[in-house]
Design a protein around this nucleic acid. Sequence first.
DNA 1: TAGTGGTCTAGACCACAAC
DNA 2: TTGTGGTCTAGACCACTAC
Lengths: 241, 241
Amino acid sequence: MAANIRASIESGGFGIDGRLPSEERLAEEHGVSRGTIRAALALLRANGVVTSRRGTRRVVLGTARTQSFEELLSFTAWARAHGEDPGARTLRVQRRPASAVERERLQLEPDAEIVEVRRLRLLGRTPVMLERTIYPARIGEAIAGLPAESLSHTAVLDAAGPVFADSEHMIDVVAADEIDAEALGCAVGTGLLREMRRTTDPSGVPLLWSEDRFLPGTVSFTVHNSATVTALARRRAHPEV
Amino acid sequence: MAANIRASIESGGFGIDGRLPSEERLAEEHGVSRGTIRAALALLRANGVVTSRRGTRRVVLGTARTQSFEELLSFTAWARAHGEDPGARTLRVQRRPASAVERERLQLEPDAEIVEVRRLRLLGRTPVMLERTIYPARIGEAIAGLPAESLSHTAVLDAAGPVFADSEHMIDVVAADEIDAEALGCAVGTGLLREMRRTTDPSGVPLLWSEDRFLPGTVSFTVHNSATVTALARRRAHPEV
DNA sequence: TAGTGGTCTAGACCACAAC
DNA sequence: TTGTGGTCTAGACCACTAC
């Protein structure tokens, strides 16, 4: 099975900069066809783990630097996966008619309602990010009744039914407004790292739209890309590397 | 051929939110095997153009939002592709021994030399970004002799031989230092959007390491990702969307 | 139950890199 | 020239969705 092959290659001691065996050889060793090996290698290449080039063996670039889809959706899941202690303080939950901009972001009809949630996110006791999320009312209902200290809204939604399939992220810098400044404890005008994203289900219907504003120096994003394919990861920022 | 199939689907009038024909049907229509169709669809899925889910037809998510590898490497290529007028002013070109950090970034031996280039990048007459790039001396030599107004160093390198295969990007916010402030015409401490990247050749050898600092509001990065794969794009920032 | 995409097989030929 | 990954074929069975 392709997934097993993938794992065996990923943890297999080929080392960084090492050359992998040929596809034919891998197929023999694992008792599968070359097509199966190629499916596994395609995933490794997409995640920046190995190179590929006609005429030469594949080379190991490094271990997987990307994160699961779940980790990119959920601050809680991401923090836990990295040994951090995620926290959340709900500042606002509101059900109301969608504005024109919001309707566009969620592809809603003119009279549609949304649920808006504003939460301060922490690592340990340190404020890190202010999150503003809007859901179509139908989706957001599962969220509206949660206690203010509850952590992963993503997990709640996941259990409620919706299937998260694709996300589109936009990353830039924005000056902190008064709301940001008060919640995050920074000065108005401080440059914050902003990530906006729309997440859709398998048929392309938006499930949520979120704008996260991170204090400088708390988080960075990494992306691997090649001529054919790329991948995204979110990381804690380190002093300098 | 898979590439043709891809193009025909991409420009084929299935519309946004439209369902694609089944793989078998597409194979018939184009006179190829299902495997070929799947190869083409895999690329479209990787770039966020279509969804895929077992049991249901594929759905069109939108037109390609990603850019070519070239556009992600070259500010000049990117700006031109978007109808902008790219400019550059070289502030510094220096050949010197690599520091410890620089050796790590380029995976160099202890006594290695580098070429460092610092350039102000413009769109029209407006300063947008300060770029600090280091190359292994062997690579950087092609750059060192160029006139200060020359635009695309990437194009020069490309013509000189090296093959750019993979890039690893890191995106965060950093406070402008005195050099940034003077070059970009902003205050010291202004939050700048920072992109650092290492670009390697097909065998994993680093060809360059670059740190770009963008004025706020000038550029943003977008990434599409799904459970299996993601993609990166750089865009001019628009007032609000 | 019928239709769909996901996985897999066992071949074939080609384009390119390295020797 | 040899070995490699890239592309393609013509099947097969399975897991899942929608009816």
